[in-house]
Amino acid sequence: MAKTETIIKETEETTEKIIEINNLSKSFADLDVLKNLSLNLYKGENLVVLGKSGSGKSVLIKCIVSLLQPDQGTIHVLGKNVVNLNRKELAAMREKIGFLFQSGALYDSMTIKQNLEFPLQRIKKNLTKKEMNEKIEEVLENVGLTDTLHKMPSELSGGMRKRASLARTIIVDPLIMLYDEPTTGLDPVTSDGISELINEVQEKYKTSSIIITHDIECARATADRIIMLQDGEVYMEGDIDDFENSTDEMITSFFKQQVHQGQKKIKKNG
């Protein structure tokens, strides 16, 4: 009986929709970036959104956090339609979402410690100074950056900056993580490290994530499910095996191109 209950609970968890997007459209001037796009993110999963540059991947996650307003459609995050939220409700919603920007977006004028304190002071207001310091140390340890506490972002390498940015994102214990091109501009070894970190974050913080990328290796390492975008529409959905075994010309060419680029990168980096 107990076993059945556990199975039912697990099934419910995996089918619980954290983000539900219906008929989302967004255009800039005459350019239709997203066209009637619908997708769901289920609890505890890592959903990878693949696609070429300009296919609307980044616009999609910016619409989820309301950095961009969609022209049409609904985006339900944790049951609430973000399109209709007022400023206060939106701020409360954003507290539950972690967003890792492509460039890292660390605040240049602050040290790493101040960067981490910034969201903590605003979202976790009840913490004491000691608890804050402990939390900062904990997340920096989780991303392997314990000795960078008093460094400025400009003193860090690209990979370290991404890690520090990830630390700033997870420090407020978000329920949902949105990663915008987490491995772009990094060498293959650092990229693998970031992919591992994404899995660790999911495991440790029990987050549900959308990972925007065009890096096949990152998708392979992190994805529970993959959606491929093409011209603002869902082109294909499945797991990594479905994509790798696909005979579709567009999918095979995308994968081949990516593998080729990866090999070139490895050769270049020795």
């Binding site: 910016k62 950095l67 701020a91 954003r94 920007f101 605040y107 910034f118 700033r168 407020v172």
Partner: peptide, 10 residues
């Protein structure tokens, strides 16, 4: 994107 980062961190 630092201004956007500020906005999404409430």
């Amino acid at each position: 994107e630092q201004i956007d980062a500020m906005e999404v961190s409430a």
